[in-house]
Nucleic acid binder design. Structure first.
Length: 225
DNA sequence: GCGACAG
DNA sequence: ATCTTGTCGC
């Protein structure tokens, strides 16, 4: 898989913000896809000892949730972690990993926010626009926005609001378990995104895509240290 | 000025 | 993220 859009990753903080503002205009917040057969999960971890990033991409069959392909790569760190500029740290290794993927997914579930972002352009939206592929932002914690606690039953949602916009949903994926933050990444509506996240989280707080990619990077991390 | 702040 | 300590619910 190759990105359909390329841009430099060697940027100052100001340049990165300007790029987000420019690319955010390309984000599509409605369903724009055909049949979803394969779904990708992605995750990145940092090795403090070796000062490098490990990225994993796993491809699951959408109905069975079986793994059909996976890739793990190492890459150097070229941008610090700054809230709001997360994608400039994690996307270079992820793009490198996607270049090795043979089974093209029709949906990518990201570990981070989509449009639930100060400039409506979080990691999931950035990845979606680069590959022009539907993506969902799925965060364990909130970056910004106000919300009421959703009901305690699986499937309950509560809107995440910022500056008068509904930027995502706080979604309860398991009864009595802390909810997660779901937002549109690219080419998918918020409602459809939540439906897919629920389908992918039959018995765990996070989607199976996230669980599998987390497992892969942790295993790779342990093997190099 | 102070707190908040995806991973 | 990752680590540690303390609290609460079942």
């Amino acid at each position: 898989m190759e990105p359909r859009l390329n841009h430099s990753w060697i940027l100052t903080e100001t340049e990165a913000i300007l790029l987000q503002q420019k690319l955010s205009l390309k984000v599509i917040k409605e369903d724009l896809f055909a049949e979803i057969r394969y779904i990708a999960g992605v995750d990145v971890a940092y090795s403090e000892q070796r000062d490098l990033l490990i990225a994993a991409v796993v491809i699951l069959e959408a109905n069975s949730l079986n793994i059909v392909e996976s890739v793990v790569v190492e890459d150097s760190v070229q941008f610090p972690y700054i809230p709001g500029l997360f994608s400039f740290r994690e996307l270079p290794p992820l793009v490198k990993a996607f270049k090795q993927i043979k089974t093209a997914p029709q949906l990518v579930v990201c570990d981070g926010q989509g449009i639930a972002h100060p400039r409506r352009f979080g990691l999931a939206s950035h990845l979606g626009v680069l590959f022009d592929i539907p993506t969902i932002g799925c965060g364990k914690t909130r970056l910004l926005g106000e919300y009421d606690e959703p009901n305690l039953t699986r499937g309950s949602i509560s809107p995440l609001q910022d500056q008068g916009d509904i930027i995502g949903n706080v979604l309860r994926t398991q009864n009595n378990v802390k909810p997660i933050f779901v937002s549109t990444g690219h080419r998918i509506s918020l409602d459809t995104a939540c439906e897919w996240v629920l389908h992918l989280s039959p018995d765990y707080r996070l989607p199976e895509t996230t669980r599998q990619s987390d497992q892969l990077v942790k295993k790779a991390l342990a093997s190099i240290e």
